[in-house]
Design a protein around this nucleic acid. Sequence first.
RNA 1: GAAUCCUUAGCUCAGUUGGCAGAGCACAACACUUUUAAUGUUGGGGUCCUGGGUUCGAACCCCAGAGGAUUCACCA
Length: 532
Amino acid sequence: MVCLKATMKKRPFPEIWFEEHRFFMSTELPLSEQEAIRRQSLEQIRAAGIDPYPADLYPVNAAAKDILAQFTDESAGIWTEICLAGRLMSKRIQGKASFAVLMQDGVRIQLYVNRDEICPGENKEGYNQLFKKWLDIGDIIGVKGYVFRTMVGEITLHVQELTLLSKCLRPLPIVKTDAEGNVYDAFSDPELRHRMRYVDLIVNPEIRATFIARSRIVSAMRSFFDAKGWLEVETPILQSVHGGAAARPFKSHHQALDVPLFLRIANELYLKRLLVGGLDGVYEIGKMFRNEGMDKTHNPEFTSMEIYVAYKDYEWMMNMVEECLAYISVSVFGSTQAEYGAHRINFQGPYARIPLFDAIMQQTGVDVSGMNEQELREQCRQWNISTSPEMGKGKLIDQIFGEKVEKSLIQPTYITDYPIEMTPLAKKHRSKEGLVERFELFICGKEVANAYSELNDPIDQRQRFEEQLALANRGDADAMALDEDFLKSMEFAMPPASGLGIGIDRLVMMMTNQTSIQEVLFFPQMRPEGGK
RNA sequence: GAAUCCUUAGCUCAGUUGGCAGAGCACAACACUUUUAAUGUUGGGGUCCUGGGUUCGAACCCCAGAGGAUUCACCA
């Protein structure tokens, strides 16, 4: 709201903007009975002179996780003056004493609240009103007290002081688990979980593990690269020419310049400019945006790690990737092995290295390496693989590979040496005619990484772009655009180099046993709620 | 983009042949000072996704639309 006002001062929004956004600006939302009751409690709390959203810091001095791990009956004496804060997840009132569950940073700990201990004087309002009536499940509270073990043996905080830190105005879905581990009323609808990830994280705290792993995987990758002396950089997300990959972009517009801008589909051409500039090892971890469909392995925005190292080739890069993934796997999970569905994935190198045409031959018994476009098209028809007229030789081979080989590559496998037609940014193969020095890494039947010996011959590069233009004119919407400034930079001489891109979301999926990209993104793309 | 299935209380879900809208949890009231899916008694809570149609009467049947799930297609 503040932000909106500030913007409006400068430049009023056109009428149509308000028309389109009136739903979001409405302040009059109908309240359910339970929401109304919580607002009433809020007013009563205020009327009692209690600030439901206090400003001062709350002196938390312990973690529920540590208490549960370290408390022993012998050491009970030292567990006093403990101060915890978190969300109230359940309340079981039994007259003048009660049990509750506090969730602090994803860990549940039981509280014991006794009327005469939190209200030592004559006035019992703090227990009878605030705790019993006005506090709801979902409220964030602070508690001070000592740790003990209940008669049934549960480690519990005996509360001596209770502070409301933030009132929750909406009912929280309550997921219950019984002694046998059966879950009741699970908050499991994927749409609701993804739209309201904050609620998902509260009531399904086990999903934190995947996101924590994701953070650690990226962090481990960063330390691996940093230790090699390579520099993390940032390059433009808004680009006037969307180069570096074959994909449809999102289009935007710059008002002041009155020019179209694209959200980047790749950052490759900018990282190569940095190689020209003399930065010999650069990498960037960031979002790419592709205007394509969504499914279990595709989100319109995704995170990619791109790295370029001067004076190396793609064989060196294969060794580096093996080393890197094994390092990440060990430092995050303590093992080079990972479960993925029924498979056990081994990230320890060396990985199998199979030339593309050999891989197709192994799976089909057919050698397609010598075929021209017409023969490839005929072969596709025999295998019942769909083709379209604008597909060139490269794309047809890619189609065959995707149909016949990709799914079978479960263990980390490099497919190497691709036809030149489908790879306009890679260097021609040093010994194999018509191929380029490229590899892709496949794990669990999905592409996870893509790398080249980078093309650094500016004349050759210009020709390759022109071939792409020809494809674009045939109707291939994904063909690459020609970037004049990039070509100019290359004419200043780019060192020979190898470059690599890793799909971080997919790598995280492989390492955390998730079959849907939505489960490794906090906020996957969803259709607008309530239709267009 | 296609097929199939789904959308009912805050959450998870029933709903008979087309005949007054249901349960558990949650919520409210009362009781209860070591419980743990706390318990007992009582009570409140609904745009049955939206819009049309058929019918005396629609959560239910028909048509259109929206959203979701799964599979396929597209897409590195």
